[in-house]
Write a protein that binds this DNA or RNA. Sequence first.
RNA 1: GCGGGUGUAGCUCAGUGGUAGAGCGUCACGUUGCCAACGUGAAUGUCGUGGGUUCGAAUCUCAUCACCCGCUCCA
Length: 488
Amino acid sequence: MAETLKSLDELVSLCKRRGFIFQSSDIYGGLASCYDYGPLGVELKRNVKNAWWKSVVQMRDDMVGLDCSILMHPMVWKSSGHVDKFADLVAECKKCNTRTRVDHLQGTEGAETTHHSHGEEQEHTDLSGKVCPSCGTTGQFTNPMPFKLMFETQMGANVEDSMKVYLRPETAQGIFANFRNVMDSTRIKVPFGIAQVGKSFRNEVTTKAFIFRTREFEQMEIEFFCQPGTDEQWWEHWKEQRMQWYLDLGIRRENLKFRPHASDELAHYAKACVDIEYRFPFGQGDWQELEGIANRTDYDLRQHQRGMRSVTKWFESGRNTEKTSLVEEPEDWHKGPLSFFDDEARERYIPYVIEPSAGADRGTLAFLVDAYAEEEVRGEKRNVLRFHPKLAPIKVGVFPLVKKEGMPERAKAIYNDLRGYFSCFYDEKSAVGRRYRRQDEAGTPYCVTVDGQTAEDNTVTLRDRDSMEQTRVSCDKLLGLLREKLDM
RNA sequence: GCGGGUGUAGCUCAGUGGUAGAGCGUCACGUUGCCAACGUGAAUGUCGUGGGUUCGAAUCUCAUCACCCGCUCCA
């Protein structure tokens, strides 16, 4: 009987052995939390991203795509709240060496809360009355130290002129910053959404479990703009759509679930949020987030309207983003530059935003984990990755049964024909059974084998990865049949 | 960041102070006629990295890096 994955180690080993995923900078001993996608991995991950794009952009009338730069104007991150919220102060308890965010510490006397402000004076906050949530000791803290969750770099080669900029911690803000541009250039109308795939960077406190939580990661994000009041129904719509996407690509239903966020868990901008979780085989079979679907309300667009009007202040502060504060929102904010005039409703408003935000690396890992199976065939162990054909790095393996009697030539001709339509792999080395098993471990759904009979009647065998059954197929019908089976 | 564990060939691992090994995989040749076949041969090691102890270190020791498990953290 087929067995699924018990620990991540087996998968990590397979990923390295077969060229899916390598540790970054491996020859230098590795760099924490960074991973590289090898020849098979890059195909798999690209297939995941392409399947997402097809589902949310290509097949929909109400979606368009975008690809923003990773570096943006620093004020983008002031407006979004990341400059403040992503620079928390942390203090370490000298007793138990546990680090805790200063604004999470509770005092013994009174509940005087430390407010978010990030001047140097913060670092001398009196923590003598605070209690360590870990060991209960009072007042044994180090001085608060800033914990920068955004990656910083500088723009400009000349030190004098260079400016501090951030690597984006989410792709979402690039979408909000381009809301106007997309509206003005596409004739699209609310309700509509913008999709983007791209790298983001966060200095996570702890990284975790292979490519699950890394500091450099790739997101697949949608910001869907809708009329206030319709947001809840669109949130439901995307919940269902996104769950169905994972199911359609072959993830087992019992390994997927929704997890609604409790109200005290919601981000400052969110009205509602639900995670799509997958049961990963790390921890104790832990459920972990693949994607979050949040109702961001009109928070972001309103904040950017404030930010747009604060640029002069920023310049006057000497381009010091942390010391710039946003101007107040005017009375008529709903008519601002990022508002939308709804012809049908005859009103102007700031759209509400539903954000389905998925991790491309997490998704790829989930597809790998869910596809993994070990089974016994004739007393031998068979490792197979049962990828959905759309995700399989290689769609078709093409072999000559043996390396003689013109079989390699015929097989190569078929290979050269098929590779124009989908990624194929030609192999003539060692016994054919071994070649089948090699393709099983790469997750290749079909293998085509040229044999002695091919020369007589122009037929080949088509072997199915999952059933291991073979059928004879005429070469003339091969391409059509494969396109049908692979749905490509 | 804390505690525990691990690090030796591409992978899995043996080797506990004295000449670096096995299985699998890879490659070549032969054989082979549909599911990890067989024979012969071959290649592949900064023993994670750097210091120390020692006549001699994969082995002892210190530091460091990376990974795993558990805390902690996770707008």
